[in-house]
């Protein structure tokens, strides 16, 4: 086993232990809500790191995939009465199909054109959710989404949701670490570093770009479904392009070169606006200033900074 994977698994084990104990120390439900949101963002940003940091592609449309997961699963469970676990899987399948289709058409684009196409996808989904009121409930949103259940246990409280969402996220992280420490992860990074050189080693650029895209869309969709059944209410506002932008900001802030960047970026930037709400006046100033500052002085993000401080090589 490579030393990188060993190290990452050790840190992950430490993180899992800490996560498991937090509810015994904090029982303020508001904090648990924020932690749950952080977990969902970590899941999504983890996928984005694969796409942006590893495969070298850009997407400003991942809130659109959240929306597919959230609305897809919520609508199915509301309209057909199917079990939320099943509808989550169905929504995931739907997202896989959509993102694969998109992957094959859109990933031919480069730079600005790719940014715009993914933005356009997000905007089209958003405006559709707003306008197709009969189906989606329109701007006021969709209430009464059933929660996940396990036997007689329903995951409705923040605490129960905490012990559902975090394990899902940690397991996904575990699997994603497997991936990045394998030939597949290497091929992705080679592709980001030099597409032509990678192709001349037999790495199929199209396959790997689409793989990273589909995988990141799947993570986003899963996060969206978990979100919908946890809060039991969703509205289009949650899935606008600002959320997409925020997700990529988390990815860069944490450092796109490593999956730990996703954990750091989403783990720190998700709670930030909630804490900044005490001084509402200065919220945008602080958020914008912090984002600029970190990216200007530490372009490799926080994980890049830590790597420099500890002189370690990232995965």
């Amino acid at each position: 086993m490579s030393s990188g994977l060993k190290r990452d698994r050790r840190i992950l084990a430490g993180l899992a232990t800490a996560i498991g104990m937090i509810p015994f120390l904090i029982n303020n439900p508001y904090y648990l809500t924020v932690l749950n949101l952080s977990a969902l963002n970590i899941l999504t940003v983890c996928g984005l790191t694969l796409l942006i940091g590893y495969a070298g592609q850009i997407s400003l449309g991942h809130a659109g995939f959240w929306a597919l997961g959230a609305y897809g699963s919520a609508l199915l469970s509301l309209k057909t009465g199917l079990n939320p676990w099943l509808t989550t899987a169905l929504a995931l399948g739907f997202t896989l199909a959509v993102s694969a289709g998109m992957g094959f058409t859109v990933l031919r684009l480069k730079g600005n054109y790719l940014v715009m196409a993914t933005l356009a996808f997000n905007l089209a989904v958003y405006f559709f959710l707003v306008e197709a009121e009969e189906l989606t409930g329109g701007p006021p949103g969709l209430p009464g989404i059933p929660p996940y259940t396990l036997g007689s246990l329903a995951f409705v409280t923040d605490l129960a949701a905490y012990y559902l969402i975090w394990p899902v996220v940690l397991i996904t992280l575990f699997l994603t670490f497997n991936l990045v420490h394998s030939g597949e992860g290497r091929a992705l990074r080679a592709l980001a570093s030099g597409e032509i050189a990678a192709a001349c080693l037999g790495i199929n650029p199209r396959r790997y770009k689409v793989l990273a895209f589909v995988l990141s869309a799947a993570y986003a969709s899963l996060a969206g479904s978990l979100y919908a059944h946890y809060f039991s209410f969703i509205s289009p506002k949650t899935f606008d392009i600002f959320f997409s932008v925020e997700l990529v900001a988390m990815c860069l802030f944490g450092g796109k070169g490593s999956l730990w960047g996703a954990v750091l970026g989403a783990g720190l930037l998700t709670p930030l606006p909630h804490f900044l709400s005490i001084f509402d006046e200065y919220r945008d100033l602080i958020y914008g200033g912090l984002l600029m500052g970190v990216l200007i002085f530490f372009p490799d993000g926080l994980s890049g900074l830590m790597r420099k401080l500890y002189g370690r090589k990232a995965p």
Binding site: R189, G194, A197, A198, L201
Partner: peptide, 20 residues
């Protein structure tokens, strides 16, 4: 056209991609 960001070993391991 070396792969920056990968170690020397990882660069060489990329070469074996077609054998995977």
């Amino acid at each position: 056209q070396i792969f920056a960001g990968l170690t020397v070993l990882e660069n060489v391991m990329c070469g074996a991609h077609r054998l995977r």
